[in-house]
């Protein structure tokens, strides 16, 4: 028998719901009696970040609300792979209406609950990035502005994966998609475009806005828990890698989700009523190259000759995030760990 070393942080981070910690500090996911709002048997791809994200978020929300939850889902991968009639993978009251109206449908659900005096049942609306930042933005902004009692969750995989990987307003610069091909003088998605939805949500001055990642489960569950303690319009933006659309190995979903944060490309923060409250510091800073290289959507950046100019522009985006959110704790006087 060979000897293995064992460490507290089994994957080099605090990502897993570690069974060594006290029960009350464990994640909802580590509980064998977790709700499994999105249960097994659905048709998502292997390594799907969105399926993982949806289960993490909804299980945490069900735990926070004593399972008194109604979920409204936009058209997209999450809807298609979970409910091919007559099957359903949902173990929660769930409804799908259209692609662009999810926030408004959720407003209607919340209004129906309010009018009959049901204060226990809570409402979550969920969509991919297309259903949030593009076609769903009108209804989402309206829901924010009216401060309707809905938590809207965006599972951001940065393109229209369900229809075959076309660009959305959440697709990062330089990324190859089916409508931003990696050819020509400016290969991939253009620089200087796109919508920063978390920032737009903060600008609506709603009670709660947060970003989260499937790589940081404790952090994600804590943010869902805080969101469910509050009423009014709330927004959670979760980065969910897509092995198919990103051209990444299925086993790398969590790794890429973590690298997005560690490079500074996807800052984790919380905001309330228009003010940034806190940001999660980067523990091990990585250059953007470490995040870009494993993804085929960025392969043209590393061709011969490499696009060092574009890589530098992406690094500048990460550096700007790090400065803006003080992700290295420099302004807080802590420095990088």
């Amino acid at each position: 028998m060979t000897e293995q070393t064992s460490s507290y942080c089994q994957v080099g981070s605090f990502a897993v719901g570690n069974r060594l910690v006290d029960p009350h500090l464990r994640t909802v996911q580590s509980d064998r009696l977790r709700p499994n709002a999105l249960t097994s048997g659905h048709r998502a791809c292997q390594g799907c970040g969105e399926a993982l994200g949806a289960r993490f978020v909804l299980d945490a929300a069900m735990a926070a609300t004593d399972r008194q939850l109604i979920v409204v889902n936009a058209t997209g991968c999450l809807e298609v792979f979970s409910t091919p009639y007559p099957e359903t993978a949902w173990q929660v009251a769930w409804m799908h209406s259209l692609f662009g109206n999810t926030a408004a449908v959720a407003t209607g659900v919340a209004a129906a609950l309010k009018v009959r005096g049901d204060t226990a049942t809570r409402v979550i609306a969920q969509a991919g990035d297309g259903g949030t930042v593009d076609i769903g933005f009108g209804c989402l902004s309206g829901m924010f502005e009216r401060n309707d009692d809905v938590l809207f969750v965006c599972y951001d995989n940065q393109a229209y994966m369900n229809t075959g990987v076309q660009r959305s307003a959440s697709t990062p610069a330089a990324a190859r998609t089916a409508t931003t091909e990696a050819r020509g003088r400016e290969p991939g998605n253009a620089f200087g475009q796109g919508k920063n939805l978390p920032a737009l949500a903060v600008a609506h001055e709603i009670p709660y806005v947060a970003t989260a990642s499937v790589a940081y489960l404790h952090d994600l569950e804590a943010k869902v828990g805080r969101a469910m303690e509050l009423h009014g319009a709330r927004y959670l933006h979760v980065l969910v890698p897509c092995p198919l659309g990103w051209g990444a190995a299925s086993r790398d979903t969590i790794r890429l989700a973590r690298l997005a944060c560690e490079t500074g490309l996807f800052p984790l923060f919380e905001a309330a009523h228009g003010e940034i409250l806190s940001a999660t510091p980067i523990r091990h800073r990585e250059p953007v190259e470490a995040y870009l290289r494993p993804q085929r959507r960025f392969a043209h950046l590393f061709a011969d000759p490499p696009r060092t100019d574009d890589i530098a522009r992406i690094q500048a985006i990460a550096d700007r995030n790090i400065g803006r959110f003080d992700l290295l704790g420099e302004r807080a006087g802590k420095g990088s760990r």
């Binding site: 109206n101 407003t107 209607g108 209004a111 009018v115 009108g138 309206g142 009216r146």
Partner: peptide, 25 residues
Amino acid sequence: PCEFINVESEFAAMSVSIGAAATGA
């Protein structure tokens, strides 16, 4: 009791109605 909701578009008006009706209102 009645919730009167001023929405941002007709698309939202019908969508709110959809959500409300599906919740039994």
